[in-house]
Nucleic acid binder design. Structure first.
Lengths: 348, 348
DNA sequence: TTGAAAGCGCTAACAC
DNA sequence: GTGTTAGCGCTTTCAA
């Protein structure tokens, strides 16, 4: 759909009897314009219905006013909840958000941090990598302002925002042990290069045992390729088929927990009486499921605003600021999947 | 972060000993370039590491290569699942997707269809309006290619993609009546200007009763401002406090259904034995919840690809194509919340 | 405080 | 098939 000729800055300038420079000043609210000319220009703008052409402005300024947010999967509640906050924070700063979803594909991810084929399409990236190794991250386009979410460790050239996964996982596991459970399983380990997130959680899981001088039941640590419901359901089925099934499970995401609970319930087991379950992420689903899910709750709002803030700072800096490790707070939220139903509630 | 001087088309042209026009042709894969020059140019491109400046291209072409997708809430699974498909479909066509979330704010929505302050930032919009009336939609920027999702009716100037809500809702209600339930409630009505989506569902609800010559229990039609879990939970609580509570509930979204089930379970009622529940949207949550949720399943993939396809057609047309009503298929997916647990499953 | 004018890097008539 | 060149509409340096 071809648009007709649009009103330009020059048209406004002509009508107002000033130079385009002055109009630009007025439109952008720059200093040093007489109230009188400002008014005259403003009237011309209104009269002509002038609206600046973003594309031209972008070219002249060499920036797009857009940031990209890259997540592995959009339909994962954790990411969509986070995204929601990021979009709000960016808009406040006058930035638009371009969404990209990688499906965890490492080539796609690598292309993105190399600014792909599309230089200048976005001024910076907030990235939640899945298939990208630390190495691939290191040899990226160094001019691209970058903030990483999740569980990487900054190499000093980008910022990293996340919670303390080891501590959180330790806390989750200790919560299960405190219930008096002796066979605690873990679902979600990923003992390979790109599974750093998972590995931190496994480390916390082990530390909890160590602190209580308990042995980890190695056969109860289950790997899953992703952190979603089907994976959780499948892993739980596997655990239940063991000779000595667990009496508690630490799931590396709430989705995994919901999948695991699904399997438990359909096998006729009671949660938490037979098996206690704890999740991670605090997505809304877990607060309304049956039973509701105990979880580690990261401060998503804080993660989002911090990420945006740091990224814009990076974009605006002449010299790149040092890459920081930024820790958002988290807390343990106890619900029915470990504490049992609220008093007075009958099991349906 | 200021970038150094970048390699331009002209640099490539110089190195290859051709004009910038030829380089442009090669880069964009246009016809009429000798294999020999093409190779020479390509070598220069590789050698210099040239990547086109999207901003400049955008300005020259007068289009951004971006489409905007506007949804009320990003963290609603239905929208994020849809978004996922839309992003994939758009990328295939070489388009980037800009996400906007309105929170249902009608002023924000109106600004967007008026192309807001950001003319040319996107070439077209796929819009799922919430607070926008048909009237506001009618007096929008007529040059903006637009596809509407959901339950509006096209006035002929834009395309509309959705399922047949009345038929789907009738089908859902009939399913409940077929179970022999006599007091069927509906949660989600919105009998005001911007609640067209809800009203179509209420209409289907009524039609189902009419077809069976049954009277609708008016006091069992509950309004909710949104279609989320808390609203469903609250509405269900209200229904249970009535003198004659319902024995079945048609919820206008799966989230509402999940919220309603949450309330039922915490009051010690059994689903579906005491109250059968059906939802709408077929989000993944409903397939793993306890009980799993019977639902109306719209073909989201089809909705997404159709929307993108029609939008791009609109963008590329000199003269706007007629506004079409496009109906995606839907089906009834029966799960435990109406059919009861699978055989052999013990209730936990 | 305002004006003139040189880009920003690419596309696409138009000419050869 | 390839070169020349005039824009696209804005920002911004430099002068006045």
């Amino acid at each position: 759909m071809r648009r007709g000729r649009e009103v330009t800055l020059r048209d406004v300038a002509e009508l107002a009897g000033v130079s385009s420079r002055t109009v630009s000043n007025v439109v952008n609210g720059y200093a040093n314009v007489t109230e009188r000319t400002r008014l005259r220009v403003q009237r011309a703008v209104d009269q002509l219905g002038y609206r600046p052409n973003v594309l031209a402005r972008n070219l002249a300024q060499g920036r797009s006013g857009q940031i990209a947010v890259v997540v592995p999967y959009l339909d994962t509640p954790y990411f969509s909840e986070l995204l929601q906050s990021i979009i709000r924070a960016a808009r406040v700063q006058g930035y638009n958000v371009l969404i990209d979803q990688t499906d965890g594909d490492r080539d796609h991810e690598r292309m993105l941090v190399n600014h792909g084929s599309s230089r200048l399409l976005f001024d910076g990236v907030i990235f939640s990598p899945l298939g990208l190794s630390q190495a691939a991250l290191a040899d990226r386009d160094p001019t691209l302002p970058l903030v990483i979410l999740g569980e990487r460790v900054s190499d000093g050239t980008f910022d990293h925002v996340g919670i303390d996964d080891v501590a959180a996982s330790r806390q989750a596991t200790e919560h299960l042990l405190d219930l008096g459970r002796s066979r605690v399983a873990a679902i979600g380990d990923q003992p390979y290069e790109t599974g750093e997130a998972a590995q931190l959680r496994t480390r916390g899981f082990r530390e909890a045992h160590e602190r209580r001088s308990l042995a980890v039941h190695e056969e109860l640590i289950i790997r899953t390729p992703r952190f979603n419901r089907p994976d959780g359901a499948g892993a739980m089925a596997h655990l239940l088929d063991l000779d000595h099934p667990p009496d508690a499970v630490f799931c590396y995401s709430d989705l995994v927990a919901l999948g695991a609970i699904h399997t438990l319930v359909s096998r006729g087991l009671r949660v938490p009486e037979d098996v206690a379950v704890i999740g991670y992420d605090d997505i809304e689903d877990g607060a309304y499921s049956n039973p509701t899910v105990t979880t580690i709750s990261p401060d998503k709002e804080m993660i989002a605003t911090t990420a945006v803030e740091r990224l814009l700072l990076r974009i605006d800096s002449r010299t790149p600021p040092p890459g920081l490790e930024l820790r958002a707070p988290h807390k343990l939220v106890v619900r029915e999947s470990t504490a049992g139903p609220a008093p007075g509630r009958r099991r349906a």
